[in-house]
Structure formats: C-alpha cells, structure tokens
Design a protein around this nucleic acid. Structure first.
Lengths: 338, 338
DNA sequence: TTGTAGGCGTTATCAG
DNA sequence: CTGATAACGCCTACAA
C-alpha cells in the first residue's frame, strides 16, 4: 500500500513549490529552471510518486489506453497480433485492453463501443460487421483503426494483407501436383479475409482446378466437422481456410482412414506455431503478423496524434510447402518443377 | 463521436434534476422517487449516457479493473485462464488488463506494480518471483491474489491445483507399462507448479521408476531441444513438464527416428486443445482451468469487497491416456490392468 | 427524497 | 519561469 497514495501535492509541498511546477517537470514539455526541476525530480523519486492515470485522463481527456477487439482469443493468429500490438503500444506508454466477441457478430458494435469508456481508440481485428455498420461505427467513434478489413470508402483506415496471392499460390501448387477437384473449407461468412481466400480459390479455376466449397469455420472443431462433409464431394485435396481448421480436418481424415498426403492433400493458412508440428507438417501460408501489428500501431499512433492516415496492404505473405501436400492420387510424383 | 461526450450534467439538465439525483439513480444504491428515477433513466438512455469510469474512479478511488499478469501469453493454458477470468469479471462489471512477463522473472514485480496505476487488484498467474519477494509484494500492494502458487504464510491468497497427484498417476501409468528409466523434461526453475511435478516424478521412484531430469522449458521449442538431451540418458519414456514441451519433443523424437510409443513413450501435462490432435494424440493430464479461473475471480471479488479469504487447492485434475504411451520396449503389451 | 457543495489528482490557462 | 485557479466528470456528506 506504500506507493499509490502520494500525490502531486505531496511532492509539491515536500519540494517547496507549487503543484503546477511539479506537473511541468513531470511532463517535461514546458521549461522549468534546471535546479528546481532537479529538486522536484529528486523528491518525486524519493517519495515514489506515480502520477494517477485516472486524474490525468480526466484532465486531458485521454486515457493512454487503446482497446483491441478480436473475434477469437483462442486463435494463435490473434494472440500473436495482440502481443505484438501490445509491445508497440507499451513502448509509447500505452496499455491495451483486449476484448473478444467470441464470433458473436451481433455483439461486435456494442462491445467495441463499450471499450470507449476506458480507451482513446480501438483496433478492430478482423471485424465481422457489415460494411455500412463498420463505416457508421467509425463515423460515430474516434480513433478507429482496423486490421484485416478494407472498406470501399477507406472510412476506418486499416492495415491488411494480400491474402489473395498466397492462396492463389497454394492453389497453383496443388494444380502443379495434378489436383483438379478440390474443396475449400470455408471460414466465417462475415470475414473479409476469409472471403478473399475463397475468391482466390475460385480464380484458380483458371489453373485447371475445380473448386467446391463446404461450410467450415475458423476452429479445430469446425475443421474436424467440415472434413467429412468435404469428402462427400470426392476431392483429391482440401483447402482449409486457416491452420486451425486444417488441423481439425487432418485428425478427421486420419480417423476416416485417408492418408495425407498420399490419398488426399491438405493446406492450411496462417502458419501458427503448431502447424510445423502436425504429422505430416502442414503446408500453409505465412502471414506477416508482426509486421501487420507494427503497422497498425504506427497507424493508431498517427490517428491519436490527429494525423490523417491511409490504409495499407502488406504483400509479404508467402507459402510454406511442407508435408500435407503431394501428387494427386494416380499421378506420379511431379515430373519437373514448373 | 456521438456518445462519449455526454456527461452526467447533460442528463441532469435534460431531465430537470440535479446531477446528484442522476448519480443516485445510476448507482441505484440510495432511494429516489420512482417517477423521477424513471424519467432520469429514460433521458439517460435517450442521450446514450455512459458514466466515465475515469471520473468515477477518481471520485471513488476504484477503477473497476483488475490486472492479470502471466508469464507467457502464447501458452494456451494461460489463454484459457485469462479468457475465463475475464468472463467472470465481466459479469461483475470489471474489465481485465492483461500483461505478460515473457518469463523475465526479474521484471515481474515491476510489471505487476505498474498495473496498479490502472487497476484495483492484480491476479498473478504462476508468479515466478521468490517467496519472500511475493510476500513482500502482497504486503505492499492491495488486493493481490494468485493462481498456481501457494506460500507457506498464505500471504497472498490464491487458488491452485493439486499437480502432484495427476503427475504421480501419470508415472504410475508408465510404471504399469513396464517403464523404469524415465526422464523428466523440466520447466521453469522458478515455477512452483513445475517443481511440484518434478517432486511427483521423484516420488514415483517408489513405483519402481528411475527418474532423471534434464533442463527443458515450457515452450514447443524448449521441448524440441530437450528431447535430444534426454535421449542421451537412454530412457524408455519422456515426461514433459507440459503439453507444449511434449509437442516439441514429439517432433524431435520423430526426426531422430524414434517411434512413439513403440520405441519410447511420452507424456504431457495441461491438456491444451492441440494435444488431442498430435499424432499420436498426447497422453496428458487435464487441469480444471475453468474451475480455477472461477475460483480466483470469486476470490478476487471477495478481496475487493474487503473480506478475508483463504487459499484453495482444487483436486479435480485427471489423467488422459491417449496414444503416446505404450509398453516399454521389450515388454509385451500389459498383461492385465492392475 | 432532493439539492448544494466540496473533493478526487492532474492539466492547462492566466496572471505575475 | 512560476504560482494561483478553473476545469475534468462523478461521488457523497451535509443541508434543506
């Protein structure tokens, strides 16, 4: 209970100056005579003075906290995002308040809004709400930035990643291996990033693929369920919306007696840490999570500073060919790399 | 920008009452005439009034936020803990502020202390600091509760789980399978929960086991590294400190050409979601995370209410025998269950 | 039951 | 460069 209690006036009294002066030296913005400043600093240190963020917030109108809203805390993808954003924010003296919607799309606006009682701005990670709603939210609330979502109007600025290309590359990889009939295990119907991937799979028809789609989800359980449904379509390869989904599918395939990749190939997306440890290791796409986190924080900082920013799309995702993809059954090993 | 800006006085003016009255109906503690209360509520709703937690905090001295400090955000074990605690806290109108030490034991006290500028209390998850330091911290700061750590003095109260029994059970399972020479892949040298597990492994000597120990860690990478070192001891089974470590070890064993469980058995601890999806699925121990989270929150709530609480130890962990454990090489399948 | 007014810890605006 | 002093939004005796 020691610290905490001492206030700016304690320091002022002890140092024999006014609280205004103490405030000035603490903030270091305006100038104070060197000797006085040093004396104040010494006293503050000795007393263990800690400015109250509450009082400061009340006075300045800023809390030095930003909120982060994610769909699923259990997804390693978001965990790393959160961690990296928190790192950047921390260096600027900001704290992050994390909330998850648990994929309850309807609650998203309310949860995000509720954050504003505590924070100066919020980072919406892969928001699921419809475009108009998102735009309206951004119009009604200050300092909104999002990740994995770009709107036509650029209204809430954000950083995202080119998901189309890596997914298309994954498809090309499968096509090269002789696959034709593939089924995509879809993610959330409200996710932009998920839709992008499906768009890429469809476009891969140009590569000779015959893409089908079944309802999936972004979790292990969803992948486990979807795999059986996908098999009914008699594909030679499964393209999962993300690694979690692929992991679930992998287990189901094994249970159903299908050997991966001999009988059927499988791809994931995200490259979460666990993906390198499945058996066989998962072929997937690596998303520049840390870079994206850095970008959003830089963006949020700019927004908080009142600057106008424009969205950014990273293009450094790359595919990782590991063990779950192989020649389509009936095809020999690929004769030559293209 | 709409909401946020309206204050209690806006509501008061609009409703034609004093701010004191508004404050009263908002809090619902003291009595206000029904009709007036209803009118105020209506106006507040219409205006979209949200009390400022900052102002409220300044006035009352409470922030309605609690901090949670964890060693590693990337460990699914802590993620679920955080999620569950947040759920309970949310129901009581509290928000949680999460910080991780990233296993930097030395930073722990400072990070925990820094939380106090924002929160009313702190939940220390598996704190690594020495006993005396922990006790001192609890003495110097209000409302400290911890999880996975019990002190002789019961100073900071906390909830933990009996880790000894399930680990001992795991050892018995191995002994029954004919294993004798086993090596324990150790976790953090500063973790109480980790030490408990090693204590159980040692005690299993009474079962005929010959336990060795190598330095490990609580991550996939650590397990990957430790596996090779453990093999030098020529064991027939590896006992990993947790699932993450086991997963890394499993990969390494495979790379080194050891078949699990035919050539060597392996056990984990925690039962994180991925563990059911390794190949073979991991034999491990299920820890009642959700129950522990509920308990700590109940405890924190009590502490915040000024009540005195006593630590609690849950005993509902149970072992999950899956595919990574089998008869010791050279032994036939177990003749009969004991 | 309701209103008045002082205070919570800081920042920021004005005078000196 | 420094010191009063009014906000900031809300809570809470104390009065009425």
């Amino acid at each position: 209970m020691a610290s905490g209690k001492i206030t700016i006036s304690d320091v002022a009294r002890e140092a024999g100056v006014s609280i205004a002066t103490v405030s000035r030296v603490i903030q270091g913005k305006t100038s104070v005579s060197p000797d006085l400043a040093e004396r104040v600093r010494e006293v503050a240190r000795r007393l263990g003075y800690r400015p109250s963020p509450l009082a400061r917030g009340l006075a300045t109108g800023a809390t030095e906290m930003v909120g982060i809203l994610v769909p699923q805390l259990s997804n390693p993808y978001f965990q790393e995002l959160i961690k990296s954003i928190g790192l950047g924010a921390g260096q600027d003296g900001y704290r992050t308040l994390v909330l998850e919607t648990d994929e309850r799309v309807g609650d998203e606006p309310d949860l995000a809004a509720s954050l504003y009682t505590h924070v100066d701005g919020v980072i919406l990670c892969s928001p699921r709400m419809p475009n108009e709603e998102l735009a309206r939210f951004a119009a009604d609330h200050p300092n909104v930035v999002c990740i994995n979502r770009i709107l036509p109007g650029e209204q809430p600025p954000g950083v995202t990643c080119d998901y189309f290309s890596p997914m298309f590359d994954l498809c090309r990889h499968l096509a090269d291996l002789g696959h034709r009939r593939v089924v995509y295990l879809h993610g959330s119907p409200h996710s932009w990033a998920t839709a992008e991937r499906w768009r890429a799979v469809q476009a891969a028809a140009a590569l000779g693929l015959e893409p089908f789609r079944v309802a999936g989800g972004l979790t292990i359980e969803a992948g486990y369920e979807a795999a059986a449904a996908a098999l009914a379509l008699d594909p030679t390869a499964l393209i999962a919306v993300n690694d979690l989904c692929a992991i679930g599918a992998l287990t189901r395939l094994r249970e159903l007696g299908r050997r991966v990749p001999d009988d059927i190939s499988l791809t994931g997306f995200d490259d979460i840490p666990f993906s390198a440890h499945t058996q066989p290791p998962l072929t997937t796409a690596r998303i520049p999570r840390a870079a994206m986190a850095e970008e959003v924080w830089a963006m949020m900082r700019a927004v908080l500073a009142g600057e106008t920013v424009t969205s950014r799309v990273l293009t450094t995702a790359e595919i990782l060919i590991r063990g779950t993809t192989g020649p389509a059954p009936g095809r020999a090993a690929p004769v030559a790399a293209r």
